[in-house]
Design a protein around this nucleic acid. Structure first.
Lengths: 250, 250
DNA sequence: GGAGATTTTTGAACACGCTCAAAAACACTC
DNA sequence: GAGTGTTTTTGAGCGTGTTCAAAAATCTCC
């Protein structure tokens, strides 16, 4: 407050219980923010990312260009709003599978398919999104502090995938698995972004074939021969994790 | 020639034997291309990617802006030139290790360190490069057809890492390993780009700790229990590979 | 309700990446 | 060397993301 800081309203500063608590209270500011994101995503879908100008977004949302920049630092930043929504939608779309299926591989596939479903309207320009996400200094990077809420939520989803399955999971690797599954799925997403097939058949195939492999790999960590290596890997993971600032909410 | 095609000179159309055959003959065009890339990289290093304008690059290279665009389709495209050089420099820097060391893990570490060495001047804005590389439609993507020569060369380097080692490598996985090692190293590069430590100690640590793990993992593929899974993975790799166009030079 | 501070809104202006029509340089033929 | 076609070079100009000083709206305290 005293500091001459960013006047931009803090997104998701409070996290009300229940799903979808991304937007704060229904203030005027929050509604304007929403309107701008709505306009942006609508236009992105219709014309693509590059062809959509900030002037057009502002007009569509009935605000001035400068005002749009008052709420979002840049055109890229609008994507952060998209992420938050996508995360919420994905979690919702994954519910049915999470509540009925118990086979681990099937749960992984189901949650993956839910993602493909939710994201399909945005696929044509998903590349543009991930392009920006790849820059480390960008707040859009999945590893950045700004993405932390969405990342935590995503990891929690994969934790649920594990928790609700009937698979016996070795204790040694159990704590690392949610994050590793999330990472695995980031790989699937990377593939999805590059998938040249129109019907996403390649991504689907990879998803369906890797899921059982993941389950098998988890089971194999039980083997005594593996033990030494697994310990090394786990230690490495902890080391790597300690390198990055993890703003874990209290 | 008949087609109203791109007048831009084809980079690396012929590949003379020996190292560093990236630039074609010493034509005027090739020299101009080089001058522009030189200017660009110099300015990138001095001021960073964003702060370097095309006008400045053109001025530094003593050509007009339009002329720079005659040789390079975009500012991003200049990065392709950087890639090609980096690849050549890396291969050269890796020579000593490749010719003396026989232990596989040590070879991996050595080649990795060589990369870190060669790339260090560009690290401050390496993120910008990889940002652009992450977009699938971009010719800068490491999976794109345009990057094919550099990728092939890189994979060949990893093939040499394997071939020159004294490690006994299971036949079953041998053919896939060069590409997998390349992929593994792309992961290291990804880490490098995100590495927050000033002295790259985190990346170094990860490199030194993962290399022996990779070697151990290769050895473990021998186990009979692994057999089924390995076969699945290999089949999957072939499947994935077939999805992407591979312009293998004859 | 009015004075003063603060937040929100505005749109003209700026710098940059990039385009393009036209000029210059070059190559080739007779 | 004149004529003709092609490659290379030029720089003014366009559209875009972004900034900023100033206006308007809102809040705060008496």
């Amino acid at each position: 407050m005293g500091a001459a800081g960013d006047p931009r309203p803090d997104p998701a500063v409070t996290r009300p219980p229940g799903v979808g608590g991304t937007e704060a209270a229904d203030t005027k500011a929050a509604r304007t923010r929403s309107a701008i994101i709505d306009a942006a995503l609508r236009l992105f879908r219709e014309r693509g990312y590059d062809a959509t100008t900030m002037r057009a977004i502002a007009a569509e949302a009935s605000v001035s260009v400068g005002n749009a920049y008052y709420y979002f630092a840049s055109k890229e930043q609008l994507i952060q709003g998209f992420y938050d929504r996508a995360q919420v939608d994905h979690a919702a779309a994954a519910r049915p599978v999470l509540e009925t299926e118990v086979d681990l591989a099937a749960r992984i596939v189901g949650v993956g398919e839910a993602w493909l479903e939710v994201m399909s309207p945005y696929r044509p320009f998903a590349g543009k999104f991930f392009k920006n996400a790849a820059e480390p200094t960008s707040p859009l990077s999945p590893f950045s502090a700004e993405s932390s809420p969405a990342r935590v939520a995503a990891v929690a989803l994969w934790e649920e995938v594990l928790a609700g399955s009937d698979a016996k999971i070795p204790r040694r690797v159990r704590p690392e698995l949610p994050e590793l599954l999330w990472l695995y799925f980031m790989g699937i997403v990377l593939f999805w972004v590059h998938d040249p097939t129109a019907d996403l058949s390649a991504t689907r195939r990879v998803l369906h074939r890797t899921a059982p492999l993941v389950v098998k790999a988890i089971a194999l960590t039980r083997l005594p021969v593996m033990r030494g290596m697994i310990d090394d890997v786990v230690a490495l993971i902890h080391d790597v994790r300690s390198v990055f600032p993890i703003p874990e909410s209290p």
